[in-house]
Amino acid sequence: MTRVAIITGGSRGIGRAAARRLAADGYALAIAYASNAAEAEDAVREAKAAGGQAVAHRADVADENQVAALFDAAEETFGGVDVVVHAAGRLVLSPIAELDLDVLDQLHRTNIRGTFVVDQQAALRVRAGGAIINFSTSVLGLSLPGYGAYAASKGAVEAITMILARELRGKDITVNAIAPGPTATAMFLDGKDPETIARMTAQPPLERLGAPEDIAEVVAFLAGPARWVNGQVLRANGGIA
């Protein structure tokens, strides 16, 4: 039986690399995106070229009705859901003292409510033998200035992940989070000057930024063979923390 994965944030960055990687393993994919239909269709074409089946579906991850419709589409198209990769997220950088609280609310709507909504549907719909994979950040261990709102949202993601893993006792479904370090995606690179990027590139002992493909390998591990890894946060950061 073909395994089926839903990937939120699948039109770009880490989500798109994860779609290519799971497609190479033969998955059928429902690639969810927020607004850019052209990028989502490109991601679908890449997934098909890598050897998988794929469709694109627009959904606001914080809207429970749209997320339910996303799961409906995956079930109707491919027959069920085995893996959920929740890679959608938002990053805002600002000192805590200066952050507009409306921006804070928007960030937390996507990162916290979005994770809760997606995980809620996943808990109800993922088949036995499946996996739920959330995304945190290694910034939680680094406590970098400017990342207060973002790190706070990802602390909530880790809490949701740990608790859901325990609530799904007896279901044969693993729940884990990946916490990337600095990774060369548009979300990370946008708004950073060359000096900041160079400094963060030099941080890991491997002396480079992560690539989306590095994180996609961790996704593939948790989605498939890693059945004894459950209720964990995997810090995929090249050794910085």
Rank of each mutant, 00 (worst) to 15 (best):
1 M>D: 11
1 M>T: 03
3 R>F: 01
5 A>T: 03
8 T>E: 06
11 S>K: 08
12 R>Y: 06
16 R>A: 13
18 A>R: 03
25 D>V: 04
28 A>D: 06
31 I>A: 01
31 I>C: 03
31 I>E: 02
32 A>G: 08
36 N>V: 03
38 A>K: 14
51 G>K: 06
52 G>S: 04
53 Q>V: 00
55 V>D: 00
55 V>Y: 07
56 A>H: 01
57 H>A: 08
58 R>Y: 00
60 D>K: 10
60 D>A: 15
62 A>V: 02
62 A>L: 12
63 D>M: 03
63 D>F: 07
65 N>S: 13
68 A>M: 08
69 A>C: 02
74 A>W: 01
75 E>F: 02
79 G>Q: 10
80 G>F: 04
81 V>N: 08
82 D>F: 00
83 V>S: 03
84 V>P: 03
86 H>F: 07
88 A>P: 04
90 R>M: 01
92 V>H: 14
95 P>R: 05
95 P>F: 10
95 P>L: 13
99 L>P: 06
100 D>H: 03
100 D>V: 04
101 L>F: 13
104 L>T: 00
104 L>V: 03
110 T>I: 10
111 N>P: 05
112 I>N: 13
113 R>W: 11
113 R>D: 06
117 V>M: 13
119 D>M: 14
119 D>Q: 14
123 A>T: 05
124 L>D: 10
124 L>E: 14
130 G>N: 07
130 G>R: 10
130 G>A: 09
133 I>G: 13
134 N>W: 00
136 S>Y: 08
141 G>W: 02
143 S>K: 15
144 L>F: 04
144 L>N: 06
146 G>P: 00
147 Y>N: 09
154 K>I: 01
155 G>Q: 09
157 V>I: 01
160 I>K: 10
162 M>W: 11
165 A>C: 01
165 A>K: 05
168 L>D: 15
169 R>M: 12
169 R>Q: 12
170 G>L: 05
171 K>A: 13
173 I>E: 11
174 T>C: 10
185 T>P: 00
186 A>K: 08
186 A>M: 12
192 K>F: 09
194 P>C: 12
197 I>K: 02
198 A>D: 15
199 R>N: 04
200 M>A: 11
201 T>K: 08
205 P>Q: 00
205 P>R: 04
206 L>D: 08
209 L>H: 02
213 E>S: 15
218 V>E: 09
225 P>K: 15
226 A>N: 07
231 G>T: 01
232 Q>F: 07
233 V>S: 03
238 G>P: 02
241 A>R: 12
241 A>P: 07
